[in-house]
Simulated assay, not measured.
Amino acid sequence: MRRDLALAFCLCLATPAVADVAETVTDHILPGYARFSDSAAALGAAAQADCRPAALRGPWNAAFDGWMGVSHLRLGPVEEQGRALAIAYWPDPKATGARQLVGVLAAADPALLEPGAMAEASVALRGLFGLERVLYGPDYAEGSYACGLARALAGDLANTAGAVAAGWGTPGGGGYADALLAAGAAGNASFLDAREARQALFTQLITGLDFIADQRLGRPLGSFDRPQPARAETLLSGRPLRNVALSLAALREMAQTLAPEAAATQAALGRAITLAEKLPDPTLAGVADPSGWLKVEILQQAVHAARDTAVAEIGAALGVGLGFNAADGD
Rank of each mutant, 00 (worst) to 15 (best):
E297A: 14
F224K: 10
R307L: 07
S247P: 04
N243R: 13
P138D: 09
L13A: 15
V134S: 02
A316I: 04
E196P: 00
L11D: 15
A117C: 09
A106C: 12
A197D: 02
L201R: 03
K278C: 11
Q215M: 15
A152Y: 00
L113S: 08
V123W: 10
R239S: 11
A22H: 06
V303G: 02
T170S: 15
P282E: 03
E233L: 09
W60K: 01
L294C: 12
W293F: 15
A14L: 15
R3D: 13
D289G: 01
P16C: 07
A111G: 07
S144L: 07
S223C: 01
F36W: 12
V102S: 15
V78Q: 05
A177P: 00
T309M: 11
D178W: 01
A185G: 10
R57E: 05
V78T: 05
V123I: 12
A232L: 00
H72C: 05
G175H: 05
Q301R: 12
A88Y: 10
P138G: 00
R99F: 14
A302V: 01
A163F: 01
A272E: 11
A255T: 06
V104S: 12
D193T: 01
R2Y: 06
A272T: 11
E233V: 08
R231G: 06
P171I: 09
G184E: 06
A263T: 14
Y136D: 02
G127Q: 05
T24E: 08
L205N: 05
